[in-house]
Each structure stands twice: as structure tokens, then as C-alpha cells.
């Protein structure tokens, strides 16, 4: 059961990877990256239970936090063109 679950998660990860490669706009790629991070969290959980080492679940928590913070930084950058207090003009 764990095997089927992790296999389907891996297939979803490769689909997100393909979308990140093909994605014509920035937002396709941002969504693909976000989805990939979420799938990594799920994959770690499933793998922990499959191998019987559930103490690694803390790492999945850290991953979801990193995913969120990185996504906020990415979107902020794509909106303002910089992280600083003085926003620059976004050059298309």
C-alpha cells in the first residue's frame, strides 16, 4: 500500500517537473514548484511510514515551512522586482 502511494506521488512529482520545464509563464512554474514542494512533504511522510522510521516526520514539517516561505519570497520578488523596501520597476 505504501509502495503504491509513494509511486503515485512520484508520478505526480514528474508531472509537476514536466510542467515546470514546459511552462510558458512564470506562474506555471511557480505553481509547479509549489506543488513539487507539497509532494515532497507527502513523499517523506509516506516513506517514513514505509521504512518504519516515523521520527523523520519533523523534517516534513520543516519542508512545508520552507516551501511556504520560499513561495512568499518568490511571489514578492516577481511582484516588486526586489526584496528591499525600495521597489524597482519590473522589466518585462
Amino acid at each position: 500500500m505504501f509502495f503504491v502511494a509513494s509511486l503515485s506521488i512520484l508520478i505526480t512529482m514528474s508531472l509537476a517537473l514536466i510542467r515546470a520545464m514546459l511552462g510558458p509563464t512564470v506562474f506555471d512554474r511557480v505553481l509547479a514548484l509549489n506543488m513539487f514542494g507539497t509532494k515532497t512533504v507527502l513523499f517523506i511522510c509516506v516513506y517514513c511510514f514505509a521504512s518504519g522510521r516515523t521520527d523523520f516526520l519533523d523534517l516534513a514539517l520543516l519542508y512545508s515551512l520552507m516551501n511556504f516561505i520560499g513561495m512568499v519570497a518568490l511571489l514578492r520578488f516577481s511582484q516588486y522586482g526586489s526584496f528591499g523596501d525600495k521597489p524597482r520597476e519590473v522589466s518585462q
Partner: peptide
């Protein structure tokens, strides 16, 4: 280059998952 930055993020997530599989949390 923007997409390359995305892919480095994906690579880091995958690499960290691989480290976890190798029992190096």
C-alpha cells in the same frame, strides 16, 4: 534564468528527500 532558479529549488527538495532516504536527517 528565472526557471533555472525554480529548478534549483526543486533539486534541493529532491536532494533533501534523498538524504533522508540515506538516513542522514
Amino acid at each position: 534564468l528565472w526557471a533555472a532558479v525554480m529548478f534549483t529549488g526543486i533539486y534541493s527538495f529532491l536532494g533533501a528527500a534523498w538524504m533522508l532516504i540515506l538516513d542522514a536527517p
